[in-house]
Write a protein that binds this DNA or RNA. Structure first.
Length: 200
DNA sequence: TGCCAGGCCCTCTTTAGGGCCTT
């Protein structure tokens, strides 16, 4: 069974192209439905956090001022992830910050990202929306702690990832639902998913 | 200080527009 790295960033805003930077990162390594290791750190990238973002995340400028420098945290995070496949909720968001922060350090990112939001839109169309917290509640997944902190969100995304694997396996009778397969599932229209399993 | 993205997906679509989702 493969190990995946479930990643979540808290940031100063929505886009590195506006100058936004990461403020916190959490990574869980998930294997066989279990968390086997964790990495979490606040980080100081020298960018002020807007008040509305602090209201959302609870991460303050004082917390960031006391945090280790972004370069050290991201180097450690990059080593922690290594060449493992990565999972995130709305992965396009975390992927662009992952790549932007590593680019500051001249570290190339070769990580392949799977997205629990794209998968959930296909698997759980009955959900009123596809926010991480809504899906966790809808599916009765474990939920401990305050949403919009990196480790809580990474753990919720990890539970969702495992549930998606289970549901695909049960629905389509597939033994090994791995990261590579799910990156294919997330790209095809919902109605074409059965054909993907029927014809490989 | 406040401003700002972008890919996906649906539909009253495809020569487009707008909501969702992430902080």
């Amino acid at each position: 069974m493969e190990t995946v790295a479930v990643l979540d960033f808290e940031t100063t805003g929505l886009s590195p192209s506006w100058g936004d930077r990461a403020t916190e990162i959490a990574i869980t390594l998930v294997r066989d439905g279990q968390v086997i290791d964790r990495f979490q750190s606040l980080m100081n990238a020298g960018r002020r956090i807007p008040a509305e973002v602090t209201q959302l995340t609870g991460i303050t400028n004082a917390m960031i001022a006391a945090a280790p420098p972004v370069a050290k945290v991201m180097r450690d995070a990059s080593k922690f992830v290594g060449s493992m496949p990565v999972v995130a909720h709305n992965a396009s968001f975390d992927k662009k910050f992952w790549e932007a922060e590593l680019a500051f350090l001249s570290i190339p990112s070769l990580s392949v990202f799977a997205c629990t939001m794209l998968l959930s839109r296909r698997l759980y169309p009955q959900s009123p929306n596809h926010r991480l917290s809504t899906l966790v509640q809808l599916l009765g997944l474990p939920n401990s702690g305050r949403a919009h902190r990196a480790m809580v969100d990474a753990e919720m995304a990890g539970h969702l990832w495992c549930r998606i694997q289970q549901d695909i396996s049960t629905t389509y009778g597939v033994q090994s639902v791995n990261h590579k397969l799910l990156t294919r599932v997330q790209k095809v229209p919902r109605v074409k998913i059965p054909a993907l399993f029927k014809f490989g």
